[in-house]
Design a protein around this nucleic acid. Structure first.
Lengths: 156, 156
DNA sequence: ATCAATGCAAATAATTTGCAAAAAG
DNA sequence: CTTTTTGCAAATTATTTGCATTGAT
């Protein structure tokens, strides 16, 4: 679960930086290492905290300046689950079409994929004269515990 | 296209206010009339502007205090299309399961429904041990003009 | 009369930005 | 050396809130 997840994505991001002729700094490396060593969704705030465990000099500003690079590269996706802050999802490199289901009580998030849904989307969108660039499907619902016990608030 | 759209939804919202024992004021009525006389998505800012055309005394604070009532009633849905402000969609009363496709250039939005996708969602989510409360599917893509002409920026 | 609703202006909070200093190439 | 990147602190911006006043019931 720790340091070697997503090494492929990390490599791709380093290429991206090189192509754009951006410099490698200690702070950037700390942030990048953090992002690509988890499969969890994270907030800007969490990324700051975690990155500082690797390099205490990482500032809030640098994290906020790195996030757009990550999303621009396509290796991380910005997600809005209706909270006041955004989440970032590092799993799009491996699973470019995955969707999310979120428990309305405990906010547990489960990812899933469906080729059939993707096909239907393409079909419908084509009929409307559009073509698909990206999609996001978010379902809010009740997790198993919530259904059975009436509550499940664990907060992540 | 004008004043009598969505009278059913308006009526339902007035019932909602009554049930919650909330008072009817001139400002609220101006906001409500505005919301239920359009099928367009709108922002808080647009709602303020439009409501003031009906009643110049409508304040920003009152609009922001009315919006949660509208979403709570289920007759208007808060949508996040990745902009810095939120959009509000007054079409959920008539079409509770509709989805959105947004052109990535001109930001034109088209709504569509698919019973088949809804079924598949239910099925998958059920397998994951969840049940569905609400869902939103947003597709970003290229509209017809963008595909044919390479550009279409009209900004709404 | 009573209590909810309003407008105003100040507060919040996530994110962004200007700038001088530090580090990369 | 030159140019990018950084941290800091101040700025920005949508939204929220405290409070004295107004208006609905």
């Amino acid at each position: 679960m720790a340091g070697t997840l997503n090494q492929e994505a990390k490599k791709r991001f380093l290429d991206f930086l090189e192509t754009k002729q951006l410099r490698m700094t200690g702070q950037r490396m700390a942030i990048i290492d953090t992002v690509f060593s988890t499969n969890e969704h994270f907030t800007a705030d969490q990324l700051i905290e975690w990155s500082r465990e690797r390099d205490h000099s990482v500032s809030r500003a640098t994290v906020y300046r790195t996030l757009p690079l990550l999303t621009e590269s396509g290796l991380v996706r910005e997600m809005d689950f209706g909270k006041e802050y955004k989440f970032y999802d590092p799993n799009y490199a491996d699973h470019p079409h995955h969707n999310h289901i979120i428990c309305k009580d405990c906010e547990k998030i489960v990812e899933f994929e469906s080729a059939r849904i993707a096909e239907l989307e393409n079909e419908i969108v084509h009929k409307l004269g559009f073509s698909v660039s990206s999609q996001q499907l978010q379902i809010t619902g009740s997790c198993d515990a919530l259904k059975r016990l009436g509550a499940c608030k664990h907060k992540h």
